[in-house]
Design a protein around this nucleic acid. Structure first.
Length: 350
DNA sequence: TCTGGGGTCCTTTATCGG
DNA sequence: TCTGCCGATAAAGGACCC
């Protein structure tokens, strides 16, 4: 298996720069309101010089760079660009797994048998994407997904990193554990506290230490990945298994009538989504986030699938009441989700 | 006035029927 | 009838990703 991981560089910000060239020389932050509760979705490289990065609160970004330009994300525009990018990629490499608007895996094995040829293919993809969309991308080529992904991140922006077979573990070893896909804030904290700071150190953990630090199945999976071992293949077409809408309020909310009204509005959006895609849902859930940031969810399952806004809203409000009965308090966020999806056609045939 | 919104997957716990 | 166990499923929470 030879796989490439492609990642568009600062995608949202790059699109906005193409749409408004005067932004190119300025620090640019695509995300929420810097005077509200928003976070940074993408910062361009100019803004990153100020220490601004994804997931940082916009208020903090504004503090770090008061002259930065802040703009709200325009997802429909990014979807169009993304579509164009992936059409272009498929023109060079037909077998592709999209994992987001701005990234995905390419099956190079179908196109070329060796890593020298694989590099040529990756270069061709990078060149084609730049030619057809003016967007910059970074690619990693390796024998597995995890190594390709770390490699694509290695020399951003506009990088290309090929990891020859046999050198995977050596390549990964030097990076901080957090760079390994699957290691998030929690796992990083535990590992670093135990002195495991690099992927190389994670790769050499003995079973007893691994079990203690990362219990459950994650430990083994992550240690395998740290060694460059990753059994995952490409997933070519994937079906949605849930749909949800959530919203963080400008100010925390306590009033039940107001919360119910919010939920019903969200239920309408969820229902519209279901109806547009010809699907029904058997499970409805409500999610709340308290002022201390803790999350609670309540869900209920029905015998038959529904796609009606009234019904979803009614159930969602009931679930909210249950959550608030279990734990009262002001809320900063509520959300409505549905799962257990089936298509209308499937259901009608049964 | 720190900390979005849309997802997926995995674990644990509760519940229920043999 | 009571208890224990097993397996299935639903519910809830948690971690992670883009």
């Amino acid at each position: 298996m030879i796989v490439a991981h492609l990642d568009l560089d600062a995608f949202f910000a790059a699109v906005e720069e193409l749409e408004s060239p005067e932004l190119r020389t300025k620090p640019l932050v695509v995300g929420g309101d810097p005077h509200g509760r928003g976070v940074v979705a993408t910062a361009n490289y100019e803004a990153r010089k100020f220490g601004i990065h994804s997931a940082m609160s916009c208020a903090e970004a504004l503090r770090r760079c008061p002259e930065a330009v802040f703009i709200r994300p325009r997802h429909s525009v990014y979807r169009e660009y993304s579509h164009h990018v992936w059409e272009t990629v498929r023109g060079v490499v037909p077998t592709v797994e999209k994992t987001g608007l701005d990234e995905g895996y390419l099956d190079i094995g179908d196109v070329a048998g060796d890593f020298l040829a694989a590099r040529k293919v990756a270069e061709a993809v990078q060149t084609a994407v730049r030619a057809s969309t003016s967007l910059s991308s970074s690619l990693g080529v390796a024998s597995s997904k995890v190594v390709a992904k770390v490699a694509s991140d290695h020399r951003k922006p506009a990088g290309l990193t090929v990891v020859p077979p046999g050198s995977e573990a050596r390549f990964l070893a030097k990076f901080d554990v957090r760079r390994l896909p699957g290691v998030g804030p929690k796992a990083e904290e535990r590992l670093v506290a135990a002195g495991v700071e690099t992927i190389g150190a994670l790769a050499t953990l003995v079973d007893a230490d691994l079990k203690r630090l990362l219990p459950g199945s994650v430990g083994r999976v992550l240690r395998d990945r740290a060694r460059g071992i990753d059994p995952r293949g490409l997933e070519l077409q994937t079906e949605r298994i849930s749909i949800s809408v959530e919203n963080t309020f400008e100010r925390d909310l306590t009033d039940r009538a107001q919360l119910h009204a919010e939920l019903r509005r969200m239920a309408e959006r969820v229902a519209r989504h279901l109806q547009e895609t010809g699907r029904v849902a058997r499970t409805v859930s409500t999610k709340v986030r308290y002022t201390d940031f803790s999350i609670r969810s309540r869900s209920t399952s029905l015998r038959a699938g529904i796609d009606d806004a009234e019904q979803i809203g009614e159930l969602a409000c009931g679930l909210l009441d249950r959550a608030l009965a279990d734990r009262p308090g002001a809320l900063r966020l509520v959300g409505v989700g549905v799962s257990g999806l089936a298509t209308h056609r499937q259901l009608a045939l049964v």
